[in-house]
Amino acid sequence: MKSPASLMRAPLRRNNPVTVQVLGICSALAVTTSLTTALTMCAALSVVLCAASTIISALRHHIPNSTRLIIQITIIASLVIVVDLLLKAYVYDISVRLSVFVSLIVTNCLVLGRAEAFAMKQPVGRSLLDAMGNSAGYSLVLIIVASIRELGGSGSLMGYAILPLASEGGWFEPLSFLLKAPSAFFIIGLLVWLGHRRDDADSVELPDHDSHLVITQAQEGRQRP
């Protein structure tokens, strides 16, 4: 059994939810054109993930097996709606830019994946730690990608100009390609490479491509048409 410290640390790099477990990629790519939206998204996801893991772990002895997934989705969806409503109420401009991606946390495999794979079997404290670790790992990737894209694509960070733009008398010619969708794929691909290189022997743990397939199989075993 992993120590609490490694529960927090492992998801940062060696078992990073985005670059190694391939969970929750949709939002990692879509909201990273600027650091502000990425940070908001990280906060939203962290709140939902921690709350969902804690609640599901606390209820794990009371959740019936057969309606397990529906209950998990209901809990997650309710939390997402509340977070979405809060964002709309307090940071309206950013929530408009995040468009539907906050709502899509519901189907973010990361949340459901951790709920199903960890919180359903482990006590509350450990589930919360695991959720915090995974939130941090997810946020780390988002922040790196968003920093590269915003700095290179518009010469600013969180809307504050860092590199003076050529169009405003400076020297920096923004690489607008970085703001387009394909660049996000390239950056994540390179991050995967980077993460792999550094760890060498440590990462014998195979990339868990199918961690959400586990859910599916579980679901499949249950469903009888």
């Binding site: 394909p182 995967v192 990339p207």
Partner: peptide, 18 residues
């Protein structure tokens, strides 16, 4: 390259498709 095999290269290919 070894580190790119599997997931890494899939991202790069998806980027090119995109």
């Amino acid at each position: 390259p070894e580190g790119l095999r599997g997931l890494g290269i899939s991202f790069i290919v998806t980027g090119l498709l995109s």
